[in-house]
Design a protein around this nucleic acid. Structure first.
Lengths: 132, 132
DNA sequence: CTTGACTCTATAGTAGACTACAGGGTTATA
DNA sequence: TATAACCCTGTAGTCTACTATAGAGTCAAG
């Protein structure tokens, strides 16, 4: 089975019908063939492409970056350098986010450790610290 | 100077006028006194409270959690345990997010390393991996 | 007293990634 | 052929934490 309606593609790809249409609208999926009735018809390529999108999302890429990656992937003329550059930008962003979260984690951990969790909130080191 | 208009509070707290009104609307700030004209008048307590909110935000708490913390802090009857519990929930969430980001970072790092960044995108290990 | 800066309320818009209608037409199955 | 299940477009709503705008009233300085 290599031609699917949107519902069938949704079923095999585990991406909802609405999301598939949304991806098309956002330029992540090309406009598919249509029946005379207007129904979209998807070839296997679209399944591959939805897999690409899913994996890129698992790496934390946003839809805009994914669209850029797909555009590069679609054109064999394009430079590997551009792909790598997008990845490295994203890597740097991930690292920044991790660092920020680690700072929060550290600070919160210290704070939570100071609180025995018993009694009234009156002398709560957490609250006191937030009130500085 | 212990009574401020909203603009003055905004200036000293570094929180915008709109955000202050928004916080009030969201229940993070109590309704302040008003002049007969309707203008809001803020005592020093509000500056402290905005500081609390800012520091809690620096720890990554969402406004809903901050509101809960403030509600607990406002009532000396409330339990320290409740405060600690909110913090530990948030800590767990931070750790989960860090773990997720670390997985992404690891995977993306490996991928980016495999790409020399030269030539056409035709045999790009990154694209190939996303296309699996 | 005028003028410009400030404040008021209520509503709408922003970003990102969807999700959910409403009001149609189409297709597959009994 | 009836009808349920599907598909179409376009628009609106969701979440979070604001930010912006409109239209009107108020305050302080000159």
């Amino acid at each position: 089975m290599s031609e699917r309606t949107i519902g069938q593609l949704a079923a095999v790809s585990n991406v909802s019908v609405e999301t598939i249409r949304y991806y098309e609208h956002q330029g992540l999926l090309p406009a598919p063939k249509r029946r005379r009735s207007g129904y979209r018809i998807y070839s296997d390529d679209f399944l591959t492409r939805l897999g690409f999108i899913r994996r890129a999302k698992e790496l934390g890429f946003g839809l805009k970056e994914i669209r850029d990656l797909l555009t590069l992937a679609d054109d064999p003329q394009s430079d590997k350098k551009a792909v790598k550059s997008i990845c490295e930008h994203h890597l740097a962003e991930l690292e920044q986010r991790i660092e920020d979260l680690n700072h929060m984690r550290q600070a919160l951990f210290k704070l939570a450790k100071q609180c025995d969790g018993r009694g009234s909130v009156r002398y709560c080191p957490i609250i006191e610290s937030l009130n500085r």
